[in-house]
Design a protein around this nucleic acid. Structure first.
Lengths: 209, 209
DNA sequence: CTAAAATTAAAACGCATGTTTAAAATGTAC
DNA sequence: GTACATTTTAAACATGCGTTTTAATTTTAG
């Protein structure tokens, strides 16, 4: 049988939803503890500070996602394309559903805000912990596109991150507009189906002369 | 001869730099008025509120940029490519240098934060004021890519915005990393040279089957 | 059952924010 | 030069924030 949710988990669950919705800085501990139905002081008791809570929220996802992505990347068959590299994101993202029902969407939103609000400590944490996976990704993409210089690849990877996190951060609003304008509801998962071809096309583009 | 800067202008000039650097919400009126060397209360006296100041900052740029972009788009020669459409952004962006020395960079950063911090009032203001230009852009891109369905084009345009905006928001940090890792300094203007081929490649990509 | 440890709870602290107030200073028109 | 309007100034206000404190409560061990 499943244990009753602990205070610590109730905080994490409430925090990640609010963070994903409104960003880190703009979400207060009072909102979080109200939503989690726990006492305000319990955040500092269990996590020490808001900063530490933010890192704990990210860690739950990064610890699943990053190793999984690394595995997928290293298992690529020889002669892979850029498109194949981006397809490697599907499985690790889908696995986040195991940590939380809407894990994939939540994670990408959190990542987006982690980038947008240039939280020094978060960026440092991510890079310290998973810089090797990022380097592997950069290297793998470069293998698929040897014609691009490392610096060109560097910039294109960051354009990719930008398009991805942005699409997810403003995802709810955009899906709403899309549904209103085109009468077509789009699930969050389907956005990635539209995204991958776009990203691959961008990375594969010939450099400006 | 040029008039001495008024309090109102000193506030606008200081505000836009701080906003572009740290975002809207995270920049306080006290930082702004200290930088501008004016009294704290003068913001509310001259603009009414922080919200109104933010809109005034954006308006200075949008009023120049949007009509100029519209002009460029309508003057495209028949048979234009996606790449041609994105090249239309160069001139309007460059013109922002007339309103302020680093106008192009500032404007894109501001736009980035306006999107990232989902400021309802700002999004509404932008759409109300310049929704027609956005529609024109969407339509023009669709002309260059008639094979894409309207909803595919809708999503790709927003991926484009995401990549652009994030490239600029995290631009200073990225340029720093790039310079450290590749020993190659990149001016802010040159980022757009790397961006345009990427965006065009993404938009032109064949849709997923 | 009891004593110690871990957790929860309520309240307050110190600080920063946007905004307002009311007086002082400055500029303008006659 | 005087009266009026505009602008600047300093101070205070109300609110929300993360954090800390202290006491009550619950859980855990022996």
């Amino acid at each position: 049988m499943t244990k009753r949710a602990t205070t610590k988990d109730k905080i994490l669950d409430a925090a990640e939803v609010l963070f994903a919705e409104h960003g880190f800085k703009q979400t207060s501990l009072r909102q979080i503890t109200a939503e989690a139905e726990v006492n305000l002081a319990s955040v500092n008791y269990h996590f020490g500070s808001k900063k530490a809570l933010i890192q704990a929220v990210m860690a739950r996802y990064l610890e699943v996602f990053m190793p999984s992505l690394a595995t997928e990347l290293t298992q690529l068959d020889a002669g892979f394309s850029t498109r194949d590299v981006f397809e490697c994101f599907r499985t690790p993202l889908a696995e986040l559903r195991h940590v939380r029902k809407h894990g994939p969407t939540l994670f990408l939103s959190l990542l987006g805000y982690a980038y947008a609000e240039i939280q020094g400590h978060l960026r440092r944490y991510t890079m310290d912990q998973f810089g090797d996976v990022m380097a592997l990704l950069l290297d793998t993409l470069h293998q698929a596109n040897p014609q691009l210089s490392p610096i060109d690849m560097f910039w294109r990877l960051h354009f990719v991150l930008g398009a991805t996190v942005f699409a997810q951060v403003s995802g709810p609003a955009l899906r709403e507009i899309a549904a209103a304008d085109f009468g077509e509801a789009v699930a969050a998962d389907q956005v990635i189906d539209r995204l991958i071809p776009f990203l691959a096309g961008g990375v594969d583009a010939t450099v400006a002369e």
